[in-house]
């Protein structure tokens, strides 16, 4: 009962919370520089893009869909930023987000109108977005003005603008998911589309909304990334797709939709960033991180899907 409401699902965030605490204790005891203000600022700077893209992915998963195009949308946003900031200034940010929304709507159109499997449709969107990005910006380059960097990241304080943005955006979406008609329609469509339809929730409309949101948030993540690296990179976002899905699952979002809360997702994002940070502080081979990420992903899936026998897929 009340499965659909966020307020009764806080327990789902517990594993991510425990993992975060363990990681903090572990890394802090191994490396003295972990708790330095510079390192903490570095952590919040990394939580910012992954947090945005994971939020979008989590919303799509709550609606029972999946979006494997978020990484390429991030890359597209960095390319748009790098190419247009010098001529149109801050207007490049809404432009990049508009492109993200466009990509999301394209996926939604394939899912709703052409009845293509969401997984495959988002893979197709990913391929197309990647192609467009590589047409716009064949190799890393372009320039994003330092003014944006100064506004966002300067000061090297862990309590700076990035933290504020994360808190505001997550706060807004937690309210949206748990306390509005829109949020409940996502949970409803995700847990049982037919029952939701009988109660006046159109799953097509929910699909359209969640994919558009996911595209916009992925693009926003790309915007922050391009500001941090001061340029564009047509392939930089690719690795974020799995991270985003990983964070959502680790945060307790059910892969089949209808269950989960966004606090867990934020904690999972923090723990993924912490793992990354631990690898860096302990000066381990960065390529080992890819292996570790894959294994963590598998572990998260096993942990959260345990005991659901009889599922064919």
């Amino acid at each position: 009962m009340l499965n659909g409401s966020i307020r009764f699902n806080l327990l789902l965030a517990l594993p991510a919370l425990i993992l975060t605490i363990l990681l903090v204790v572990f890394t802090a005891s191994l490396s003295s520089s972990f708790l330095s203000s510079a390192n903490l600022a570095n952590l919040t700077n990394r939580v910012l893009p992954l947090g945005m893209v994971a939020l979008g992915e989590a919303i799509v998963l709550m609606a029972g869909r999946i979006d494997l195009s978020v990484g390429t949308i991030m890359s597209l946003a960095t390319a748009i930023m790098a190419l247009t900031v010098s001529s149109i200034g801050w207007l490049a940010i809404p432009l990049a987000m508009l492109a993200g929304v466009g990509a999301g709507l394209f996926t939604a159109a394939g899912v709703i109108l052409l009845r293509i499997n969401p997984l495959v449709m988002s893979l197709a969107t990913a391929a197309i977005v990647k192609g467009v990005t590589l047409l716009l910006l064949p190799k890393p380059g372009g320039q994003v003005s330092y003014d944006f960097y100064a506004l966002l990241f300067e000061g090297e304080s862990p309590l700076g603008v990035p933290l504020l943005i994360v808190i505001l955006v997550y706060g807004a979406f937690i309210l949206l998911a748990g306390w509005t008609r829109f949020g409940r329609s996502i949970y409803a469509a995700g847990s049982d589309p037919r029952a939701a339809f009988a109660h006046g929730v159109s799953s097509a409309r929910v699909d359209l909304q969640v994919y558009a949101l996911s595209g916009a948030l992925a693009a926003l993540a790309g915007v922050f990334l391009s500001i941090r690296i001061l340029s564009g990179d047509p392939l930089i976002g690719d690795a974020y797709t799995l991270d985003a899905v990983s964070a959502a699952i680790l945060g307790g979002i059910a892969l089949k939709g209808g269950r989960g809360n966004l606090i867990g997702v934020l904690l999972a994002v923090i723990s993924l960033v912490l793992i990354n940070n631990t690898f860096n502080l302990l000066q381990l081979d960065t390529n080992l991180q890819a292996i570790a990420k894959g294994l963590i992903f598998v572990a998260a899936l096993v942990f959260f899907m345990r005991g659901k026998a009889g599922d064919a897929d």
């Binding site: 799995l242 892969l255 081979d285 890819a290 292996i291 294994l295 598998v298 899936l301 899907m305 659901k308």
Partner: peptide
């Protein structure tokens, strides 16, 4: 085995495998 024994959806299991393979190749 990931799909059958651990009941992970195939596309995610193989996505994780590909990440591990790429990482291993690089290491």
């Amino acid at each position: 085995l990931l799909v059958v024994a651990l009941r992970i959806p195939a596309f995610l299991a193989t996505l994780a495998t590909s990440l591990v393979l790429t990482g291993t190749t690089l290491v």
